[in-house]
Amino acid sequence: MKILVTVKEVATVEDEFEIEGTGIADQYLGADLNEWDDYAIEEAVQLQEAGVADEVVTVTIGPEECEQTIRQALAKGADRAVRIWDDSLEDVDLLDVGAKTEILSAVVEEEDPDLVLTGVQAGDDSFGATGVSVAEHLGYQWGAVVNHLEHDFDDAASVRRELEGGVEELTEIELPAVLTIQTGINEPRYASLRGIRQAQRKELDVKALADLGVDESAVDAELELTDMYEPESESDVTTWEGSAEETAGELAELLRDKGVAQ
């Protein structure tokens, strides 16, 4: 079985930051592997270790600078990586779900995996739609917000999905399928030093849109970012000093008062 994992380098923001126009000023930004994708990679690598998968491939849309982040997945056990970049992507401010769907679907068609794992959402733009949209586009089955996956399957995956209000659903999903992976499904490993060393020699293939047969017009966004602002906060914070034993009762009291717990 072949697994394709979509991964993304996301922007991270410092606690204190300033907004410039419709973005956050560069000096407050960092970059990291999207947290949800880290769990998706771990799940794929575990499936490989369990003998269910025999190849794990990652795909990302991003410029050359994101390769170091993408190699984290290779260091953790993915076999090879595909990176999509194109001159036409250079000037795109907001790559919307439609564009990502077109591009990633083309990769899925080329790679022909049995299972596609994505994160539930990206930590920066938080569309939370790409995985399901790709499935819909390709006519794949899909399962969103998966927080458990059985590690023995052939043509259908047994998954547990997180629904609203703390309700969970157990379901069988026929392959090929796209599963969007929720944080907490596993405990992502650290890349081992040996893994980091080996990752340098793993294949990282770079493709342009034309290589995938995707027309440049696909990246024209239908969405436009018009404003960015910090919402007025109406929350307040209560902190207690002291050990858990001393303060747990006070916390329980507060939760009861606020109607959160009974």
Binding site: R189, S192, L193, I196
Partner: peptide, 27 residues
């Protein structure tokens, strides 16, 4: 140890990462 930090400079053939003095210094 799981991450390979304890034997970073032990050669790969004996289960380490075979890292050099410079990489060990960085670690």
């Amino acid at each position: 140890a799981e991450m390979g930090l304890v034997g970073a400079s032990i050669p790969i053939e004996y289960g380490g990462a075979g890292y050099s003095t410079l990489e060990s210094a960085i670690i």
